[in-house]
Amino acid sequence: MKIMTCPMNGPRNISEFVYGGEVQEMPDPNNCSDREWAEYVFYSDNAIQVVREWWMHSASSYWFIAERHTGSDEILKTYPSTELFKERVEFAAKATGQTS
């Protein structure tokens, strides 16, 4: 049973965590093409490399980021999500007349 180190709670059995998908940048939902949007929703790179992922420690409902190598499954580091997400995100109003 693998050990993952939660940035707030320390090393714990992996069963204490929930996987939340890869960290992905959302294209502008109001201005990207249908294809770009579909790729964002459905596709992932699936390469053998270090990926950045969301993980949540269930007992404390604490979300954080892990960097993991998809080939060896080694977790290289974990850190608070505030290191990647520092600014308030705004969504611009839709242009009038826009329906899709």
Binding site: N9, R12, S15, E16, H57, S58, A59, S60
Partner: peptide, 12 residues
Amino acid sequence: VCQTSVARINAV
């Protein structure tokens, strides 16, 4: 303080 799973439920 330890926040973890006890008997499969979340506990502090």
